[in-house]
Structure formats: structure tokens, C-alpha cells
Design a protein around this nucleic acid. Sequence first.
DNA 1: GAAAGCCTTGACCGACTGGTCAGTCACAGG
DNA 2: CCTGTGACTGACCAGTCGGTCAAGGCTTTC
Lengths: 211, 211
Amino acid sequence: MTEQTSATDLSIPPYGEDTVSERMQSILDTGTALFAEKGYDATSMRDIASAAGVSKALLYHHFTSKEDIYARIAFSATQNLNQYVWDRIPADGTAAEKLRAFMVAAAQFFTHHRSAWVAASNAFWSDPDRHRMEQRLARRRAFEMMLRDIVRAGVESGEFGDVDPAMTGRLVLSGINWMHRWHDPEKTLTPEEIVNQYADILLGGLMAKAG
Amino acid sequence: MTEQTSATDLSIPPYGEDTVSERMQSILDTGTALFAEKGYDATSMRDIASAAGVSKALLYHHFTSKEDIYARIAFSATQNLNQYVWDRIPADGTAAEKLRAFMVAAAQFFTHHRSAWVAASNAFWSDPDRHRMEQRLARRRAFEMMLRDIVRAGVESGEFGDVDPAMTGRLVLSGINWMHRWHDPEKTLTPEEIVNQYADILLGGLMAKAG
DNA sequence: GAAAGCCTTGACCGACTGGTCAGTCACAGG
DNA sequence: CCTGTGACTGACCAGTCGGTCAAGGCTTTC
């Protein structure tokens, strides 16, 4: 029953192979909320400490630096995205079905990790840790490639018109990535409903050219 | 010959009704570049001063605060956008032509004001000046309304399928707004070429539903 | 030449930043 | 009862932040 909570669920697993104590997790959760709300620079270690109800010194007992805290959040936010989305793309579907499934899955993941995602994307470029940075870039590239492959297959099979897979992928991801700038989680429309409407528009466009 | 450089050209006019001296303009240009490159928080007044080759105190002789400098940049960046785009939408064109013209014009404006635009959108939400903030929000709303009206007209005339104008507008603007996150000005593709490809995809989608 | 007025500056301020450190506390094993 | 260990803290550090200020040029005007 619990044997399959591994790669495809929505929980945030520990950073690397460490286990995180309750205290650490509560600090991380507090930091996630603050980073998402105010941004990396505008969030001080004192802010995190007082919001978490602990002393600032304790942060440095559990983490090595502010960057460390942020990096764990950003790392977790994107860690399972690729696998999660990949698992939700029907292997035997049409290109249109796959594209829509990709968008919906990405939106679902986004919904569940909203704060961490916003925090991560707000400060995406300021990670001084080369290795971690490259890991994240590699994951992002793989994510984009998954999308382009779907579009390319559709173009080659004639299901889509003769569009550039890279450019189409960028347009799709623009819609998904920009969503957090205007979407209000309190409002009626869920991210899934939004990307489904996006998919309606986009898929119509792609198929119009195929005749 | 020079009588028509007023509302529709791409130059950045003075803030409000003031005239800006050469020195002020050079400070603003320096600030624009730094804000765009590093963001608002990460750019200090000392950075701007030394990059502009003047003392920090001089900044406070010409401007009242860091916010003042940033606000002038952000204000200028969006000041002429609406008029510029409006003037480039063909009054007697089809909805598809108008939508494409809208996107191309926005991309052109973006190209010419890239740094200021990036600086402004990176810190869009942190303006403490209510009046200025509301002015910018009003302009943005007007900008979105212009776009929605185009889509709505296309839907009502049957040229487009039965899409939601608001949601379609968001998708279009997502592509335009997200562009600066990945677009490299050094590379071959210009923003105009990119939005033209976006328009190809989107317009196909909209028209497919009309039959 | 002196007064007037802007441009320009270095020195300085209090507030705040990320980070450190000696030391307190509770609790474990001997 | 002693000793260690990990969680936890207040006080403190050097450095940077946005912003201020009195005073020194540099022109222009009388």
C-alpha cells in the first residue's frame, strides 16, 4: 500500500540523502513561504528565524548559510517535476493528448508546490553553487526536451502543422511559467483549468495547419 | 519633418513634465542597465554612482531616492507602450491581422526598451508610491483591454473560435512577457520574428474552431 | 572682485545584513 | 555523580545599505 510513494508523488523528499528533522522542515517551510512572498534578497535570516519562532543562530546550527536554505527549497521544488510529468503522459496517446497531458501535469505540480516554485523561479539565476546550478539547468533542459519531442512527433506524423518544436515549446512554457504572476489561488479557476484552456487554443492552432 | 516625434516614437521622454539634464540622463541610463542586469535590490546606489563615474551624494542632488531613480525608469519604460501599439494596429484589418500587429508592435517596443523593461518587470510589485503604482496598473489594464477587444471582436465576427478573450489575452501576453527570460539579444532571432512565430501558432488555433 | 547659485564631493550616520561564538540547557551513557 | 553531545540562545562582528550634510569648486552675473 505504501510501497509506491517514491518518485511520482507530490511530496518534497529530503535534500540529497539527508533526513530532515521536524525543526529543519519547519524552518524550510517558513523560508519557502517568505522567499515566495518577498523574494530572496528581501528575506533576511532574522525574518526566517522570527517567523519560525527560533533564534537566528539556530538557523546556522541546522544549515550552513542562507544560500543553503534557499538551495534546498529550490532543489526540492524541481526535483520530481520531470518524473511526475513523464509518468502522466499517455504512451499510446496522440500528440495532442500528450501535449495536453504535459501541460496539465505541469500545472498540477505547480499547484502543489506553488510557494517553493515561486521562490525558486524568482531567484533562479543567482545560485553561486555551480554543481547545483548545472543540475537544475540540466533538469530544465530535459523538461523542455520532453515537450519538444512531443511537438516534433506531432509535426512528423502530420498531426500538427509545420511549426518549430522549440518555439512552440517556449510558447507553451511561457503560459505555464507566467501563470504565477497573475494567478490568484483564491480565485475560482484552478491552474489545471487554465492550462486546459491554453491547450484548447494552442492545439487548435497546431492542427489547423495540418489540414 | 521633426514635428511628429511626439507620442508614437520610441524615445524615452522626461518624467512627468520635468526636463532631464545630460547628467541625470546618464545616471538614469546607468541605473537602467544595472537594474536590468542585477535587479533592484542587488543594485546599490554606490554601484550606480561608481558606474556613472560620479559620487553617491550627487545621486541625491539630482534624485530624491533610489526609488525615485527606479520609478522614473519603470515609468518611462511603459509610458508610450499603449500609444505605440495602438498606432500600429490597422483599423480596417481582420482580427487576425490586428492580433499579429499587436504582438509585433509590443515586441518592437520591447526590443528598443529592453533594459528598462526588464528592470521594470523584475520589480513591478515593489513600488510604494500609490499614485505611480496605480498609474502603471491602469496602463497595464488598458493594454490588456486593447488585446482582449481584438480577440473579442474576432470571436463575435466568427473569425475566431469561441475562446475566452481574457484567457487568450493572458496566453498571448505570457509569450511576450516571458520572452526576456530566455531571449538572448545577441542571437539571430529578433523578438519580432519570435512573436510572428507565436502568432502563426496562436492564430491557427483560434481560426480552427471557426471552421 | 565679490556675490550668487548650481554641481559636486568625502566624511559620516543609524539601521540592517549574513555570519560567528562562547556558553546554557536537557538528556544520554558510564 | 561526572562527562559528553546535540539543540539552542543572546551578544556581538565586520561590512553594506540608503540617505544626509557641510563645505569646496566653477560659472555666471553684477
